[in-house]
Nucleic acid binder design. Structure first.
Lengths: 142, 142
DNA sequence: TTGATATAGTTACATTCGTAACTGTAATTT
DNA sequence: AAATTACAGTTACGAATGTAACTATATCAA
Protein backbone atom coordinates (compact mmCIF):
# COMPACT_ATOMS: atom_id res chain seq x y z
CA UNK A 1 0.00 0.00 0.00
CA UNK A 2 1.46 3.27 -1.10
CA UNK A 3 1.02 6.44 0.87
CA UNK A 4 2.69 9.63 1.91
CA UNK A 5 1.83 8.77 5.49
CA UNK A 6 4.51 7.26 7.75
CA UNK A 7 3.58 6.34 11.30
CA UNK A 8 7.15 6.56 12.48
CA UNK A 9 7.49 10.17 11.41
CA UNK A 10 4.02 11.09 12.62
CA UNK A 11 4.53 13.64 15.34
CA UNK A 12 1.92 12.32 17.80
CA UNK A 13 3.57 8.92 17.57
CA UNK A 14 7.11 10.25 17.92
CA UNK A 15 6.14 12.46 20.78
CA UNK A 16 4.31 9.75 22.63
CA UNK A 17 7.30 7.48 22.39
CA UNK A 18 9.74 10.04 23.66
CA UNK A 19 7.34 11.00 26.39
CA UNK A 20 6.89 7.45 27.60
CA UNK A 21 10.59 6.82 27.62
CA UNK A 22 11.17 9.92 29.65
CA UNK A 23 8.26 9.48 32.05
CA UNK A 24 8.92 5.84 32.78
CA UNK A 25 12.55 6.54 33.58
CA UNK A 26 11.49 8.78 36.40
CA UNK A 27 8.46 6.76 37.38
CA UNK A 28 10.73 3.87 38.31
CA UNK A 29 12.16 6.10 40.98
CA UNK A 30 8.99 7.18 42.76
CA UNK A 31 7.42 3.80 42.22
CA UNK A 32 10.29 1.82 43.66
CA UNK A 33 10.98 4.25 46.46
CA UNK A 34 7.43 4.92 47.61
CA UNK A 35 5.08 2.79 45.55
CA UNK A 36 3.49 5.91 44.12
CA UNK A 37 1.51 6.34 40.94
CA UNK A 38 2.07 9.19 38.52
CA UNK A 39 -1.00 11.06 39.73
CA UNK A 40 0.20 10.78 43.30
CA UNK A 41 3.63 12.03 42.40
CA UNK A 42 2.17 15.02 40.60
CA UNK A 43 -0.15 15.94 43.43
CA UNK A 44 2.70 15.62 45.91
CA UNK A 45 4.98 17.72 43.75
CA UNK A 46 2.37 20.41 43.30
CA UNK A 47 1.59 20.65 46.99
CA UNK A 48 5.30 20.56 47.80
CA UNK A 49 6.03 23.36 45.43
CA UNK A 50 3.07 25.66 46.04
CA UNK A 51 2.11 24.85 49.62
CA UNK A 52 -1.49 24.32 50.68
CA UNK A 53 -3.95 24.16 47.79
CA UNK A 54 -7.48 23.00 47.08
CA UNK A 55 -8.19 20.02 44.86
CA UNK A 56 -9.42 22.30 42.10
CA UNK A 57 -6.23 24.31 42.23
CA UNK A 58 -4.27 21.09 41.85
CA UNK A 59 -6.33 20.25 38.79
CA UNK A 60 -5.46 23.64 37.33
CA UNK A 61 -1.76 23.24 38.01
CA UNK A 62 -1.38 19.67 36.85
CA UNK A 63 -4.00 19.21 34.18
CA UNK A 64 -5.00 15.97 35.89
CA UNK A 65 -8.61 14.90 35.79
CA UNK A 66 -10.45 15.77 38.98
CA UNK A 67 -11.23 12.14 39.77
CA UNK A 68 -7.54 11.35 39.55
CA UNK A 69 -6.78 14.19 41.91
CA UNK A 70 -9.51 13.08 44.28
CA UNK A 71 -8.14 9.56 44.38
CA UNK A 72 -4.53 10.62 44.62
CA UNK A 73 -5.33 12.97 47.48
CA UNK A 74 -7.17 10.21 49.27
CA UNK A 75 -4.29 7.83 48.93
CA UNK A 76 -1.67 10.38 49.97
CA UNK A 77 -3.84 11.23 52.94
CA UNK A 78 -3.94 7.54 53.89
CA UNK A 79 -0.14 7.56 54.09
CA UNK A 80 -0.45 10.56 56.39
CA UNK A 81 1.50 12.71 53.97
CA UNK A 82 -1.16 15.38 53.86
CA UNK A 83 -3.94 16.80 55.97
CA UNK A 84 -7.20 18.45 54.99
CA UNK A 85 -8.49 21.60 56.57
CA UNK A 86 -12.00 22.65 55.80
CA UNK A 87 -12.26 26.13 54.41
CA UNK A 88 -14.16 28.41 56.76
CA UNK A 89 -15.82 30.51 54.10
CA UNK A 90 -16.74 27.72 51.71
CA UNK A 91 -17.49 24.40 53.28
CA UNK A 92 -17.28 22.55 49.98
CA UNK A 93 -13.58 23.28 49.85
CA UNK A 94 -10.71 21.57 51.59
CA UNK A 95 -7.32 23.09 51.90
CA UNK A 96 -4.71 20.38 51.43
CA UNK A 97 -1.39 20.64 53.13
CA UNK A 98 1.59 18.30 53.32
CA UNK A 99 2.62 16.91 56.67
CA UNK A 100 6.24 16.78 57.76
CA UNK A 101 6.46 13.27 56.37
CA UNK A 102 4.93 14.40 53.11
CA UNK A 103 7.38 17.24 52.83
CA UNK A 104 10.30 14.99 53.44
CA UNK A 105 9.14 12.56 50.73
CA UNK A 106 8.75 15.52 48.42
CA UNK A 107 12.25 16.74 49.22
CA UNK A 108 13.69 13.31 48.59
CA UNK A 109 11.93 13.01 45.23
CA UNK A 110 12.94 16.53 44.26
CA UNK A 111 16.54 15.56 44.62
CA UNK A 112 15.92 12.53 42.47
CA UNK A 113 14.11 14.79 40.00
CA UNK A 114 17.00 17.20 39.79
CA UNK A 115 19.38 14.32 39.25
CA UNK A 116 17.16 12.88 36.54
CA UNK A 117 16.89 16.26 34.93
CA UNK A 118 20.66 16.55 34.90
CA UNK A 119 20.95 13.15 33.30
CA UNK A 120 18.60 14.15 30.49
CA UNK A 121 20.37 17.48 30.04
CA UNK A 122 23.67 15.69 29.68
CA UNK A 123 22.19 13.30 27.21
CA UNK A 124 20.67 15.97 24.98
CA UNK A 125 23.19 18.72 25.55
CA UNK A 126 22.30 22.00 27.20
CA UNK A 127 21.32 23.84 24.02
CA UNK A 128 19.14 21.10 22.66
CA UNK A 129 17.54 20.60 26.03
CA UNK A 130 16.57 24.24 26.18
CA UNK A 131 15.33 24.21 22.63
CA UNK A 132 13.17 21.17 23.30
CA UNK A 133 11.68 22.69 26.46
CA UNK A 134 10.77 25.83 24.58
CA UNK A 135 9.22 23.90 21.74
CA UNK A 136 7.16 21.77 24.08
CA UNK A 137 5.84 24.80 25.89
CA UNK A 138 4.41 26.07 22.65
CA UNK A 139 1.95 23.19 22.60
CA UNK A 140 -0.01 24.78 25.39
CA UNK A 141 -1.34 27.15 22.76
CA UNK A 142 -2.14 24.52 20.15
CA UNK B 1 9.09 25.09 50.72
CA UNK B 2 12.17 26.13 48.80
CA UNK B 3 13.67 24.03 46.05
CA UNK B 4 15.43 24.19 42.77
CA UNK B 5 12.83 21.78 41.42
CA UNK B 6 9.95 23.07 39.33
CA UNK B 7 7.35 20.64 38.07
CA UNK B 8 6.35 22.89 35.21
CA UNK B 9 9.84 22.94 33.77
CA UNK B 10 10.42 19.26 34.44
CA UNK B 11 10.89 17.67 31.06
CA UNK B 12 8.81 14.53 31.67
CA UNK B 13 5.93 16.75 32.70
CA UNK B 14 6.30 19.17 29.80
CA UNK B 15 6.65 16.37 27.34
CA UNK B 16 3.68 14.48 28.63
CA UNK B 17 1.50 17.54 28.32
CA UNK B 18 2.56 18.32 24.80
CA UNK B 19 2.17 14.69 23.86
CA UNK B 20 -1.34 14.45 25.23
CA UNK B 21 -2.40 17.60 23.49
CA UNK B 22 -1.07 16.32 20.22
CA UNK B 23 -2.35 12.76 20.55
CA UNK B 24 -5.81 13.70 21.64
CA UNK B 25 -6.22 16.08 18.74
CA UNK B 26 -5.80 13.22 16.34
CA UNK B 27 -7.56 10.67 18.50
CA UNK B 28 -10.75 12.64 18.15
CA UNK B 29 -10.63 11.90 14.47
CA UNK B 30 -10.27 8.13 14.53
CA UNK B 31 -12.50 7.86 17.56
CA UNK B 32 -15.33 9.87 16.08
CA UNK B 33 -15.01 8.42 12.63
CA UNK B 34 -14.59 4.74 13.53
CA UNK B 35 -14.83 4.41 17.31
CA UNK B 36 -11.25 3.17 17.44
CA UNK B 37 -8.83 3.18 20.33
CA UNK B 38 -5.24 4.33 20.03
CA UNK B 39 -3.94 0.76 19.99
CA UNK B 40 -6.33 -0.13 17.21
CA UNK B 41 -5.31 2.89 15.19
CA UNK B 42 -1.66 2.00 15.55
CA UNK B 43 -2.14 -1.59 14.58
CA UNK B 44 -4.19 -0.54 11.59
CA UNK B 45 -1.60 2.03 10.58
CA UNK B 46 1.22 -0.47 10.90
CA UNK B 47 -0.52 -3.12 8.86
CA UNK B 48 -1.59 -0.51 6.35
CA UNK B 49 1.91 0.73 5.92
CA UNK B 50 3.88 -2.52 5.95
CA UNK B 51 1.37 -5.04 4.66
CA UNK B 52 0.87 -8.44 6.28
CA UNK B 53 2.72 -8.85 9.58
CA UNK B 54 2.67 -11.10 12.61
CA UNK B 55 1.59 -9.82 16.02
CA UNK B 56 5.17 -9.86 17.25
CA UNK B 57 6.26 -7.76 14.30
CA UNK B 58 3.56 -5.26 15.14
CA UNK B 59 4.88 -5.11 18.69
CA UNK B 60 8.33 -4.36 17.33
CA UNK B 61 7.10 -1.62 15.04
CA UNK B 62 4.77 0.11 17.46
CA UNK B 63 6.26 -0.49 20.87
CA UNK B 64 2.79 -1.51 22.05
CA UNK B 65 2.49 -4.17 24.73
CA UNK B 66 1.72 -7.57 23.27
CA UNK B 67 -1.59 -7.81 25.13
CA UNK B 68 -2.66 -4.54 23.61
CA UNK B 69 -1.75 -5.81 20.19
CA UNK B 70 -3.56 -9.07 20.81
CA UNK B 71 -6.71 -7.22 21.85
CA UNK B 72 -6.50 -4.64 19.11
CA UNK B 73 -6.05 -7.35 16.48
CA UNK B 74 -9.04 -9.21 17.86
CA UNK B 75 -11.22 -6.16 17.72
CA UNK B 76 -10.09 -5.13 14.25
CA UNK B 77 -10.75 -8.68 13.13
CA UNK B 78 -14.26 -8.47 14.54
CA UNK B 79 -14.91 -5.48 12.27
CA UNK B 80 -13.69 -7.62 9.39
CA UNK B 81 -10.89 -5.19 8.69
CA UNK B 82 -8.25 -7.90 8.85
CA UNK B 83 -7.87 -11.60 8.31
CA UNK B 84 -5.50 -14.09 9.88
CA UNK B 85 -3.62 -16.67 7.94
CA UNK B 86 -1.82 -19.38 9.82
CA UNK B 87 1.84 -19.61 8.98
CA UNK B 88 2.64 -22.91 7.33
CA UNK B 89 6.08 -23.34 8.81
CA UNK B 90 5.31 -22.20 12.33
CA UNK B 91 1.84 -22.91 13.56
CA UNK B 92 2.17 -20.55 16.51
CA UNK B 93 2.27 -17.63 14.15
CA UNK B 94 -0.53 -15.83 12.36
CA UNK B 95 0.03 -13.57 9.45
CA UNK B 96 -2.30 -10.59 9.72
CA UNK B 97 -3.52 -8.84 6.64
CA UNK B 98 -5.97 -6.00 6.09
CA UNK B 99 -9.12 -6.65 4.12
CA UNK B 100 -10.35 -4.26 1.48
CA UNK B 101 -12.50 -2.56 4.10
CA UNK B 102 -9.53 -2.30 6.45
CA UNK B 103 -7.41 -0.80 3.72
CA UNK B 104 -10.03 1.76 2.90
CA UNK B 105 -10.33 2.80 6.56
CA UNK B 106 -6.56 3.07 6.65
CA UNK B 107 -6.53 5.23 3.55
CA UNK B 108 -9.16 7.49 4.97
CA UNK B 109 -7.30 7.92 8.23
CA UNK B 110 -4.05 8.49 6.42
CA UNK B 111 -5.57 11.44 4.68
CA UNK B 112 -6.74 12.77 8.02
CA UNK B 113 -3.26 12.11 9.40
CA UNK B 114 -1.60 14.05 6.63
CA UNK B 115 -4.02 16.92 7.17
CA UNK B 116 -3.36 16.87 10.90
CA UNK B 117 0.35 16.79 10.29
CA UNK B 118 0.05 19.80 8.04
CA UNK B 119 -1.89 21.65 10.70
CA UNK B 120 0.83 21.00 13.28
CA UNK B 121 3.54 21.97 10.81
CA UNK B 122 1.79 25.24 10.14
CA UNK B 123 1.44 25.87 13.81
CA UNK B 124 5.07 25.25 14.65
CA UNK B 125 6.65 26.41 11.44
CA UNK B 126 8.55 24.09 9.14
CA UNK B 127 11.96 24.58 10.72
CA UNK B 128 10.79 24.12 14.26
CA UNK B 129 8.75 21.11 13.27
CA UNK B 130 11.79 19.46 11.78
CA UNK B 131 13.91 20.36 14.76
CA UNK B 132 11.36 18.89 17.13
CA UNK B 133 11.05 15.67 15.16
CA UNK B 134 14.79 15.23 15.19
CA UNK B 135 15.03 15.89 18.90
CA UNK B 136 12.28 13.42 19.68
CA UNK B 137 13.93 10.72 17.64
CA UNK B 138 16.98 10.99 19.84
CA UNK B 139 15.02 9.63 22.77
CA UNK B 140 15.04 6.20 21.23
CA UNK B 141 18.63 5.98 22.38
CA UNK B 142 18.07 7.30 25.90
C1' DT C 1 -37.02 34.49 50.49
C1' DT C 2 -37.44 30.81 47.22
C1' DG C 3 -36.22 28.46 43.22
C1' DA C 4 -32.78 27.70 39.65
C1' DT C 5 -28.11 27.25 38.46
C1' DA C 6 -23.24 26.56 39.38
C1' DT C 7 -19.33 24.64 41.75
C1' DA C 8 -16.20 21.38 44.89
C1' DG C 9 -15.41 17.09 45.39
C1' DT C 10 -16.73 11.96 45.59
C1' DT C 11 -18.52 7.72 43.98
C1' DA C 12 -20.54 4.05 40.79
C1' DC C 13 -19.90 1.79 36.76
C1' DA C 14 -18.09 0.16 32.71
C1' DT C 15 -13.83 0.09 30.13
C1' DT C 16 -8.95 -0.34 29.68
C1' DC C 17 -4.62 -1.57 31.27
C1' DG C 18 -0.36 -4.32 32.76
C1' DT C 19 1.45 -8.39 35.09
C1' DA C 20 1.69 -12.88 35.29
C1' DA C 21 0.14 -17.16 34.29
C1' DC C 22 -1.30 -20.01 30.76
C1' DT C 23 -1.74 -22.90 26.01
C1' DG C 24 0.18 -24.61 22.20
C1' DT C 25 4.12 -25.14 19.20
C1' DA C 26 9.04 -25.06 18.01
C1' DA C 27 13.90 -25.44 19.01
C1' DT C 28 17.56 -27.17 21.79
C1' DT C 29 19.87 -30.21 24.87
C1' DT C 30 21.00 -34.66 26.76
C1' DA D 1 13.58 -39.40 21.20
C1' DA D 2 12.71 -37.55 25.62
C1' DA D 3 13.21 -33.77 28.40
C1' DT D 4 14.03 -28.97 28.73
C1' DT D 5 13.79 -24.48 27.30
C1' DA D 6 12.14 -20.71 24.36
C1' DC D 7 8.70 -18.40 21.94
C1' DA D 8 3.82 -16.69 19.80
C1' DG D 9 -0.11 -15.37 21.29
C1' DT D 10 -4.19 -15.37 24.64
C1' DT D 11 -6.48 -14.99 28.94
C1' DA D 12 -7.42 -14.14 33.99
C1' DC D 13 -7.22 -10.96 37.32
C1' DG D 14 -6.45 -6.96 39.91
C1' DA D 15 -5.45 -2.08 39.43
C1' DA D 16 -6.21 2.26 37.12
C1' DT D 17 -9.00 5.03 34.14
C1' DG D 18 -12.84 8.20 32.27
C1' DT D 19 -17.72 9.31 32.06
C1' DA D 20 -21.53 10.38 34.24
C1' DA D 21 -24.20 10.67 38.10
C1' DC D 22 -24.31 12.10 42.63
C1' DT D 23 -23.99 14.97 47.40
C1' DA D 24 -23.33 19.00 49.55
C1' DT D 25 -22.75 23.76 49.48
C1' DA D 26 -22.76 28.32 47.40
C1' DT D 27 -24.44 31.87 44.19
C1' DC D 28 -27.67 34.09 41.36
C1' DA D 29 -32.26 35.58 39.77
C1' DA D 30 -37.08 36.47 40.34
Amino acid sequence: MKSEFDLHSFLPFLMHHASEKLSLGFRDIYRDRYRMTRSEWRVLATLGQYGALTATEIVTHTGLHKTKVSRAVFSIEKRRWLKRYQDENDRRVHRLDLTTQGKSAFTSLCEAGVAYDRKVRDFLGEDEFKRLSDLLKRFNDL
